[in-house]
Design a protein around this nucleic acid. Structure first.
Ligand SMILES: [Mg+2]
Length: 393
DNA sequence: GCATGTTTAGGTGCGG
DNA sequence: CCGCACCTAAACATGC
């Protein structure tokens, strides 16, 4: 029997969960993201208990990374070669722990499931049971595009702050393809399905300058969650280090200051970096980005019988303008599974689709990075005369 | 083979 | 009893 006095620090299991340990490791890093082996190293350096039986607990830890939505992968860019992705905290997960002691957790963080997404979008539930339907939809769509090289992407409304009115989307954007042709192509393989995709405007990533004043203060990981493909770590770091973005900092984002887009098959993470701007526990405007959206808020806003009231309540919680809020709420209802799918990944097994996507990304790099007029900086909170957030129910 | 991820499955403990 | 957070094992895929 082990002596009570002898098995102290090095043999005692720390009272922290794997989630807590991993969050500690990630938050201790300057960029708020770490590769797997660095997470290992942090835990072993700081908790001698985990210097033994590494195979066992590391298996559990990897399970936690995959299973828990609060951990997301940040794709590596060519300027950071290495094994595996970076792991970061989901920008929406906020303060997972009471007071930050890592000992007690609040509610489990879960992003919108497929069923919830379809329900909030008013879409017929599909047949595939897997929760990774976003990736699957992306794969299917891209294969279709690969078969039809002239096709173009629907712009995805990732950031509601993106001035969509200024984007070169023609009136044909209302020519929506049938949702059924996306959701169940295997069951509806009519020849018109592919042609119905046909005229589509170019894929638009939210252009950085449009909301770069909001990028100031975000972690590099949060920025790269959306711009992992386009944003070098160094630029993400310099952006996040700004206390407040001013027009004098625009030179950081001049097109010639940005490196050329690199056609690399990297999965963009379906995360919007604008989250977390309004304090812990507060839903940010980006919470309406449909992706990475906490289920409770997505359903309540999308399902609100009174969109105007929902927008008003959102305005009271954020510093967004009333117009932005109403646009946000309405766009939530109009979101299509294809828009979700577009953000969720690239196929590695389809060269045709891959080349198409990378070429589109080059177009985005040119057209999406023109210097834009900055939206007015967030002023004081909206007075909101009827300040009660009427989340009808 | 090994590192990195994803997923399924079964188990424990706690609180309503 | 149930739901929930958490733990552990293991099968499996993928890329180097
Ligand atoms: Mg995860």
């Amino acid at each position: 029997m082990p002596r009570p006095g002898r098995n102290s620090y090095e043999e005692q299991k720390p009272p922290y969960s794997y989630i807590a340990l991993t969050a500690m490791a990630i938050q201790s890093s300057h960029e708020k993201m770490l590769p797997l082996n660095e997470i290992y190293k942090f835990i072993m350096d700081n908790f001698p208990f985990y210097r033994k039986n590494t195979q066992r607990w590391q298996n559990s830890l990897r399970h936690n990374l995959s299973f828990n939505d609060c951990f997301i992968k940040i794709p590596r860019r060519p300027d950071r070669p290495g094994k595996g992705s970076y792991w970061a905290l989901h920008p929406m997960c906020g303060d997972m722990f009471e007071n930050g002691s890592f000992l007690r957790r609040r509610k489990r963080f879960k992003v919108m499931s497929r069923l919830a997404a379809e329900a909030s979008l008013g879409v017929k539930p599909g047949l595939e049971p897997t929760s990774s339907f976003l990736q699957e939809q992306a794969r299917i769509r891209l294969q279709q595009w690969g078969a039809a090289p002239g096709a173009r992407f629907q712009p995805y409304p990732l950031s509601p702050l993106t001035p969509t009115s200024e984007t070169p989307t023609s009136a044909s954007s209302k020519h929506s393809f049938s949702i059924d042709s996306i959701m169940a192509p295997d069951f509806k393989s009519s020849p018109t399905a592919a042609s119905r995709l046909l005229p589509q405007p170019a894929l638009l990533r939210p252009p950085l300058p449009a909301f770069s004043h909001l990028a100031a203060g975000l972690s590099p990981a949060a920025l790269m969650a959306t711009y992992g493909m386009d944003l070098p770590v160094s630029l993400a770091t310099s952006l996040s280090s700004l206390a407040r973005f001013s027009s004098a900092d625009l030179h950081l984002l001049k097109p010639d200051a940005l490196p050329p887009a690199v056609p690399v098959p990297i999965k963009p993470s379906p995360i919007n970096p604008l989250v977390g701007l309004h304090g812990a526990g507060r839903p940010s405007p980006a919470a309406l980005a449909r992706i990475g959206l906490p289920l409770s808020m997505a359903t309540s806003l999308a399902g609100s019988a009174n969109p105007a009231a929902a927008a008003l309540s959102l305005a009271s919680m954020s510093s967004l303008s009333a117009a932005d809020c109403s646009a946000l709420v309405s766009s939530l209802k109009e979101a299509r599974p294809s828009a979700l799918a577009l953000t969720s990944g690239l196929p590695r097994d389809n060269p045709a689709a891959l080349s198409l996507v990378t070429s589109l990304d080059r177009d985005v790099a040119v057209s999406g990075r023109q210097p834009l007029a900055l939206p007015p900086p967030p002023s004081a909170a909206v007075p909101s005369p009827s300040s009660e957030p009427s989340s009808d129910s």
